[in-house]
Design a protein around this nucleic acid. Structure first.
Lengths: 281, 281
DNA sequence: TATGGATTGGAATTAATATTTCATATTGAC
DNA sequence: GTCAATATGAAATATTAATTCCAATCCATA
């Protein structure tokens, strides 16, 4: 192996792109495949990769040799190393942000801390969201005559966003907030043909709990967004989502809740459109 | 291989932890090594892993079989799958989410789309936020007697969050919203010793623009969060932030704006505490 | 402390995988 | 169009790695 063999993925990638024009057809084919499917190269066997790329195993080895490696195995090491590093890189970057933020590096650090908390929360919810629950919630909300939206304090911004988005989608909704103190009366109008989105996180705002209970007692189905299965909201809800938000400096992120809220809203709009088409068509 | 063989890493991990106490010494040794060095299991050979863990290759296979796999190779697949999912670099994961969302794979795809949009927006703002502007905004807001918060429609959730957080930090603030239509009068009370956070994105809500103009004319310093240097808000503002939010399905994310808002709020609280200490000490 | 069963180490075996080789096909230059 | 150089396919071979097997050891129990 000569001195200029690429040892890291980026160099390798650059080298391949650089020589691309001058490579023979089959070699170019495997080169393109390698850049498009680096994970396959990292994990596969020469035979399996060759098959996926539509070439012979020997071509794979010639490709590696042409780049200066002494065989496929050495080439593969670069792809594996990349995975190892990439693995850590995102988490490390986040950890670095958070560390810097926590050791108190000025005001910029505060900003970094919140960005890190938001990213972490999004990653978590993306991994943990249950598809079936989501579908169920969408179905339940899509057939409601009016969607009541219920949240106070820290969760209120989410509720106000939901109300805004539902309005834009022309879906009848009622944000339960009344400057005149008429929440109870407002809730009284809800029927089992309606539905509720209730949002509350520990420490649960007592008003949210009370209103959720009373609306549940009227037989109105509830979709809850909360932070644990022990949440008082969970017992009232037909479907509930557990959202774990990361916090920074005592302030919890609401980015994951927000993303879920947006998705619910738009999915409900989508489902109604589908239903509408079916009725007409 | 029986039915209950763990197919994903988390299940596998749980199974191992569960049985840990009842495992023979060498098997326990390799079990601990596997959980501590999952990357090594994913990439290594039976011999190399066994050597690193200080056991015989055959022990490794017995370990796998005890978990229900038919050999080391099947066990290794689980560790590799984990890397594929986890490791597929952050950007790649995002791209995958977005691609899946855009090709329209049902309702889950909508959720993925919003998560991707939020993550992208956070990445963008993290790169583009100007430290000096941020410091300036914090300084300006920290010395205000009352912070007025101004935003309508899509930006309103951010404003309501700011008002909530400022309240928690015991910083006097006024969310400019009045069910009684008294916004103009409310604004009339502001003086140059106060400050304003105004938030608006294209298409700029006319009310926000009008109110911002009139409050600017009273000499009240303004911090604006908006989406372009051509924004009508920019001309009125002492400091302004350009926040580019990614969108999905016509709905723009607000996660970056939210992170910035949280950071501003908490940084202002921080700066006030610092100033308080200095006066006393 | 003797006995049986479980556990372990290490070598032998088997399976798999990478690499090489060689015949054939393709391409480009004259 | 011919020739040489280059590229490719397919199978043979060499290498490496997984698995199995058996003897040795350990451990619990009587």
């Amino acid at each position: 192996m000569d001195e200029r063999v690429p040892r890291d993925f980026e160099t390798l990638r650059a080298t391949i792109l650089d020589r691309r024009a001058s490579l023979p057809k089959r070699i170019a084919q495997i080169a393109a495949y390698a850049l498009d499917n680096p994970d396959d190269i990292a994990f596969g066997t020469a035979a399996s990769i060759a098959a996926s790329a539509g070439v012979q195993p020997s071509t794979l080895i010639r490709f590696a040799q042409q780049l200066g490696f002494d065989g496929f195995t050495s080439l593969q090491l670069v792809f594996r190393e990349r995975l190892r590093e990439r693995n850590s890189s995102y988490d490390e970057r986040l950890a670095a942000l958070r560390a810097k933020a926590e050791e108190g590096g000025g005001h910029r650090a505060i900003f970094d801390g919140f960005v890190a908390a938001a990213s972490t929360s999004l990653g978590d919810i993306s991994r943990s969201l249950n598809d079936a629950h989501f579908e169920e919630a969408v179905a339940l909300l899509a057939k409601a005559e009016t969607i009541y939206v219920l949240a106070k304090r820290r969760s209120y911004p989410v509720a106000s966003y939901i109300a805004y988005a539902l309005g834009k989608l022309k879906i009848r909704n009622q944000l339960v907030e009344s400057a005149a103190g008429l929440n109870a009366e407002m809730i009284g109008f809800a029927t089992p043909r309606d539905a509720v989105i209730a949002i509350s996180f520990s420490p649960y705002a007592p008003a949210t709990i009370d209103e959720t209970r009373s609306i549940a007692e009227q037989g109105v189905p509830i979709v809850a967004i909360t932070d644990s299965s022990f949440s008082p909201l969970a017992q009232f809800a037909k479907v509930w989502f557990e959202v774990a938000e990361a916090d920074f400096g005592g302030f919890r992120s609401i980015s994951a809740t927000m993303a879920l809220a947006m998705a619910l809203t738009v999915a409900v709009g989508e489902k109604r459109r589908e239903a509408g088409r079916r009725r007409k068509g």
